[in-house]
């Protein structure tokens, strides 16, 4: 009798789980259908609901970004492409569309990094922290194998492969680990943000500026900023952002949206 009861409860649970899963699928499917029918506002609502009830994914943010683009909300489209890339830096579609939307919307980021550093940054940004960490670990284990080959094999050629291969793998492992840490810093702490307002005036001190003449700079909607500091002043939250030339500038936290 008890067995039967347990069985019944088990089956009921399974059924409940199954319907939940089905429902889960149907929200994003309905969103996709709405987007296909160019009902972008509805699609967005459904995508948000899916995010709220089931969590996010790179693909979800990517689809939301596309939807925002169709709604002509370029800053939010850029924000969501960046979020998609944050979850999965290998999402090439998101990278492609991000660059396209930025070109279309004429958004250029001011960067104080030189060409080489930017290239290194881009390369590191191509894979997630976890991917880099996995590569680093695999390279490390392979390095140990190479060291073993060098130490235990008779064959001189094999020993050479072991020796130079080992050194190369050690370098790869170290660089990958460094990249993994860099990506971890970039994603886990989220100090990057996208400007949401059409024109944001920057202040050289932690207080908001109202007049354009007193601003130390201006930012355009859709531009990416690095947040380096934040304070609460007069009930407002202010962010310090990185500026070219090792300068800092302040803006209101409501003017940007963290990636």
């Amino acid at each position: 009798m008890t067995k039967r009861l347990i069985y019944c409860i088990f089956m009921l649970c399974l059924a409940a789980l199954a319907t939940q899963a089905q429902q889960a699928a149907s929200i994003t499917d309905r969103a996709a259908q709405a987007a296909h029918d160019e009902m972008y506002n509805d699609a967005l609502k459904l995508y948000r609901e899916a995010e709220h009830t089931q969590g996010a994914s790179s693909a979800l943010y990517y689809n939301m970004a596309n939807t925002y683009y169709h709604l002509k909300d370029n800053p939010r489209a850029i924000l969501y492409y960046e979020r998609a890339l944050k979850l999965d830096p290998a999402n090439d579609d998101a990278r492609f569309n991000l660059n396209l939307v930025r070109t279309k919307a004429q958004i250029h980021d001011e960067s104080n990094k030189n060409y080489l550093l930017t290239q290194i940054d881009n390369l590191v940004g191509r894979a997630s922290s976890n991917t880099w960490a996995t590569v680093a670990l695999m390279a490390f284990v392979l390095m140990l194998i190479c060291a073993g080959i060098y130490l235990f094999m008779d064959d001189v050629a094999a020993r050479k492969v072991g020796f130079f291969g080992g050194i190369a793998l050690l370098v790869i492992s170290a660089l990958s680990l460094w990249s993994a840490i860099a990506m971890y810093e970039r994603t886990a702490h989220g100090h990057q943000a996208i400007v949401m307002e059409t024109e944001v005036l920057l202040s050289d001190s932690p207080r908001p500026v109202k007049q354009a003449a007193k601003a130390v700079g201006k930012l355009q909607a859709g531009q990416k900023v690095n947040i380096v500091d934040s304070i609460d002043a007069q009930g407002q939250r202010l962010f310090a952002i990185e500026m070219p030339g090792k300068m800092q500038a302040w803006l209101n936290a409501t003017q940007v949206e963290k990636i």
Binding site: A50, E51, Q54, G55, A56, S57, L60, N63, N130
Partner: peptide
């Protein structure tokens, strides 16, 4: 879309 709540770091 592979929705999930957790994002874990190795």
């Amino acid at each position: 879309l592979g929705l999930s709540r957790k994002q874990s770091f190795l």
